[in-house]
């Protein structure tokens, strides 16, 4: 029987990510990984795109992974795990290996997923591999020093979209990758956040048991890039959820479902004002950008409500 999704039960399971990794204090990525892996009882095999999570957890001769793990390159976490899964299926089919209901998971940050790895991800899920691809989305290339990606929110300051005298941070709205993945018509797509751990864990379980390719997009704070205190990680993540910047929903066999509806949808300012990367937006000459951002969030939220039959 599956372990009950209660911390008291989960903490009895073996810890799959060992301490001693060198992610920054308060990093969201390792929280996401720990929660997701704790939700899976079956054996897992992981591929990891180049990025903070990969670099900081496997500085030779140390590894934090107590599960089989492979890093290949930046843009190919999805194709790498698809190869591992193909090998498994082949070996099992030929009787060269015992079948063990192994769960194959690819991890990548937003740079490795939204940008450079999008083609490999699209190809891998189209081919129907039994794999879960997880994007831990912290909204920039944090590992190389906070450069903008197509996941970076509108108006954010990054080192390649700096808030300058003329241009106030990133000029484009972010790519909606979750919807792009839903458009692949794969069995499971979910958007989640570690501040709602049960929701994240339930989605993880559905994803690895959907019988085909699954994708999850998980909001993951980077306090160095977002500019907040190390202990505010989950609080600010939840503000992202409650302002509907990051709605929690899933698309299961084409059925869209909102999995969390904020009791009160907070204005986006509540999320922005807590992060240094948006500080410049509060200058009088930039306030209109907050309004634009709010409009965009409202528009997308309404659209999502409609898709989920909640409108």
């Amino acid at each position: 029987m599956a372990t009950r999704l209660a911390p008291k039960e989960l903490m009895k399971q073996p810890e799959r990510l060992a301490p001693g990794h060198r992610l920054c204090a308060g990093c969201g990525a390792s929280i996401v990984v720990r929660q997701m892996l704790a939700a899976i009882d079956e054996p897992v095999v992981i591929s990891n795109a180049t990025g903070c999570l990969e670099v900081a957890t496997t500085i030779y001769p140390y590894t934090s992974w107590r599960v089989p793990w492979i890093h290949n390159a930046f843009e190919n976490s999805a194709s790498t795990i698809s190869g591992v899964e193909a090998a498994y299926r082949s070996l099992v089919r030929q009787g060269k290996m015992e079948e063990k209901d192994v769960k194959f998971i690819g991890f990548g940050g937003d740079g490795g997923t939204y940008d450079i790895g999008l083609q490999a991800l699209s190809g891998a899920v189209e081919r129907g591999h039994q794999m879960l691809y997880v994007c831990y989305d912290n909204g920039a290339y944090m590992n190389t020093g906070i450069q903008r990606s197509s996941a970076t929110p509108f108006g954010a300051h990054t080192t390649t979209s700096p808030a300058g005298k003329k241009i106030p941070g990133k000029q484009q709205f972010r790519k909606d990758l979750t919807r792009i993945m839903a458009a692949h018509d794969i069995p499971y797509v979910g958007q989640a956040a570690p501040s709602k751990w049960r929701d994240l864990m339930e989605k993880t379980r559905k994803a690895v048991n959907c019988g085909g390719p699954a994708f999850m997009n998980v909001l993951s704070s980077c306090n160095r890039g977002w500019r907040h205190a190390t202990d505010e990680t989950l609080e600010i993540t939840q503000l992202g959820v409650d302002t509907c910047y990051w709605p929690l929903y899933e698309v299961e066999d084409g059925e869209w479902r909102l999995t969390y509806k904020p009791r009160e949808k907070l204005p986006i300012e509540e999320w922005l004002k807590r992060q240094g990367r948006f500080r410049h937006l509060f200058k009088p000459q930039n306030r209109h950008l907050i309004d634009e951002k709010q409009e965009e969030i409202d528009r997308k939220w309404e659209e999502l409500l409609e898709r989920c039959g909640e409108a």
Binding site: N72, L91, A120, G123
Partner: peptide, 27 residues
Amino acid sequence: DTEFVTVESEHSAMSACVGASAAGARV
């Protein structure tokens, strides 16, 4: 008995080969 992975690019071809080879398969 081959699992034939019809990848979307050569980059993914070699990437999948590396994954499969690490997994102990003849690739």
